[in-house]
Design a protein around this nucleic acid. Structure first.
Lengths: 253, 253
DNA sequence: GAGTGGTCTAGACCACCTG
DNA sequence: AGGTGGTCTAGACCACTCT
């Protein structure tokens, strides 16, 4: 938060949330903001670009920026682990390992984790909860080079992401998430206390290091109603994409 | 595509897709790209910022940019309507109005569309398909000020968004989407040819004009397997929460 | 036509990563 | 220590919107 443009962005966020600029109202022009904060116009542009990306203001050439909303929505804007996300919402995350074993990589593992055929992977099945309520079933697959460290973690480890950072300095830097819906399998139903076949929100994710090396892939199945995901979207640009059905058939683990 | 930074971004995209820069490889430095394309560094930064937002490259201070992937997923960023998105993928979208009627706004309508209590809305139930296959059930609610125009559209109108633009110059500029999973109701099941209770991916959306005025809200229920949604994600500027600066510096593998 | 945001330049300094 | 990306400046011109 030391960068000047971030300070300005935060000041504008608070002004919007505080009602100084109502929803539907116009923001001051870039030049005026530049004068007000004593910075160059480019710095103001960096600040308002952040608000635009968050969906708080809209922007079009030739017209003043418009305040679109003052929601403090928690989206995928930043890569957060479940535990970290929960914490930032002021809630308590729990986690428990149900099952954990090594096995040879199958075709899907080889593809997603960029492994050599025949490599070994570590599969972990976890149930995670929020404030004591069971919320999701998580199936992770780790390549061999992180398996040892993961296996050494306590089985009720609250945040695997945090633990791997603390233990070996491993950073979960980038993620790609694919979202769809799936019926609860027998195992899912049992673990979440729902009936078999109930709808679950599924997020399949590959996480990589800064260098783009895959650290894990995961199949997370959320009980609906406990967590929702929001995306803001403009005619300009934002990081959600829609794709036609691909070559990944659902499978039961 | 006339802006120089967009041309450069597109050139880099093609270089990545064409294998000039493999996944995991490093991009040339900003200075080198600036020299190569004969532009200032700021222009190169605009170009690579686009690639970063698309999840194609990763970026961190002090290190060269890394190629993360070469996906060719159509960006949903441009807030395309279903029909426009389908067309850009070379597929054929169909749509059919099942039911269309006016009714008084309920509490949900008033909230989402920012209406006065007692206002009238137009509700439309549509089924949409891709290449002849039924893919989603769409329930739209329009405020009175667009209802007339929507009612006049043909019942098999392929793209309502396009039609409203052509007819009255109305631009669907911003959207907020909330994603969850839901069980198919009797009506959903019937219309999509599935069994009742089957899992559907639900996206509830409010779309607004440039000025932030709501144009519609919609409850779209997708049959799983036909369309998936993807999000790219990076840790951004916020380093993975804190730890003591004295001991074990982060390592990268 | 006046005002606004979008693009672009040509510098500068700093924070950070890597050898 | 040298290179790289992140921040910032102070201009300029253009495309667009608004009235």
């Amino acid at each position: 938060m030391s960068a000047r443009h971030e300070e300005i962005a935060e000041a504008l966020r608070q002004a919007i949330d505080g009602g100084v600029y109502a929803v539907g109202a116009l923001l001051p022009s870039e030049s005026e903001l530049a004068a007000r904060y004593g910075v160059a116009r480019g710095t103001v542009r960096q600040a308002v670009a952040a608000l635009t990306a968050e969906g708080r203001v809209g922007s079009r050439q030739g017209a003043r920026r418009v305040v679109l909303g003052n929601h403090r929505s928690q989206s995928f804007a930043e890569l957060r682990s479940f535990a970290q996300w929960a914490q930032s919402m002021g809630r308590t995350a729990t986690g428990r390992v149900i099952e954990q074993f090594r096995r040879p990589a199958d075709d899907e593992d080889v593809l997603r984790l960029q492994l050599e055929p025949g490599a070994e992977v570590l599969q972990v099945l976890r149930v995670r909860g929020l404030d004591g309520e069971r919320v999701l079933v998580e199936r992770n697959v780790y390549p061999a080079w992180v398996a040892d460290t993961v296996e050494r973690l306590p089985r009720d480890c609250k945040s695997v992401v945090q633990a791997l950072y603390d233990e070996v300095g491993l950073v979960f830097a980038y993620g790609e998430h694919v979202i769809d819906a799936v019926a609860a399998g027998t195992r899912d139903a049992e673990l979440l206390g729902m009936r078999r076949g109930a709808p679950l929100l599924r997020i399949r994710r590959v996480t990589t290091t800064h260098a783009g090396r895959p650290i894990e892939w995961s199949d997370d199945r959320y009980r609906p109603g406990s967590v929702t995901f929001a995306i803001h979207n403009s005619i300009g640009s934002n990081p959600l994409s829609r794709r036609a059905a691909t070559d990944d058939p659902p499978r039961e683990l």
